[in-house]
Simulated scan of single mutants.
Amino acid sequence: MASDTRITGQFTIPPELSDKRLDQAAAELMPEHSRSRLQSWIKSGALTVNGKTRKPRDKVMMDDVLDLDAEPEVQVSWQAEPITLDVVYEDEHLLVINKPAGLVVHPAAGHADGTLVNALLNYAPEVENLPRAGIVHRLDKDTSGIMVVARSLIAHTSLVDQLQSRTMGREYEAVVVGSLTGGATVDAPIGRHPQDRKRMAVVPSGKPAVTHYRLVERFAAHTLVRCKLESGRTHQIRVHMTHVRHPLVGDPVYGGRLRLPKGTTEALREALAAFTRQALHAKKLTLEHPETGEIVSWEVPLPEDMLQLIEALRKHARELEHGDY
Results as ranks from 00 to 15, higher is better:
V244K: 02
A209G: 09
G206A: 11
V176R: 00
A201I: 09
G256K: 14
T157V: 06
D187A: 12
G178H: 04
R214N: 07
R170I: 10
R214T: 11
T223S: 15
T185K: 03
D187V: 12
R245E: 15
H235N: 13
L248M: 14
T167F: 07
Y172R: 02
G250T: 14
R218I: 01
I237N: 04
Q195H: 14
R214I: 02
A174V: 01
R245N: 15
G206M: 12
R226L: 13
L224Q: 06
R245G: 10
V216Y: 01
G191Q: 00
V176N: 02
G256P: 11
E217W: 01
R238S: 02
T185C: 03
V210W: 12
H240L: 08
L163H: 01
L180C: 03
V249P: 03
V160D: 07
Y254A: 09
L215H: 04
C227K: 10
S179Q: 13
P208W: 14
G183C: 09
A201L: 06
H243L: 07
D187P: 07
H243V: 07
G182I: 02
Q236L: 11
P194F: 06
L215P: 00
Y172K: 02
T167D: 05
V203S: 09
S165K: 07
T157D: 06
L224D: 05
R214Y: 05
D161A: 04
G191M: 03
R245K: 15
I237V: 11
P247S: 11
L248W: 08
G256I: 12
L159T: 00
Q164H: 13
G191S: 00
M241W: 06
A209Q: 05
E217R: 14
H235A: 11
H222C: 08
L224E: 01
G178F: 00
S165A: 08
Y213E: 06
G255F: 10
L229M: 10
A174Y: 01
V160H: 02
V253A: 12
D196W: 10
F219Q: 04
T223V: 01
R245T: 13
V239I: 07
Q195F: 12
D187G: 09
Q236E: 13
V239Y: 01
H222R: 07
M200S: 06
L180G: 00
R170V: 08
R214W: 08
L180H: 01
T167S: 15
R218W: 01
Y254K: 06
M168S: 01
E230L: 13
V225C: 07
Y213K: 07
G191E: 02
I190W: 04
R233A: 06
K198S: 15
R197F: 10
M241Q: 12
Q236G: 12
V210F: 12
G256A: 15
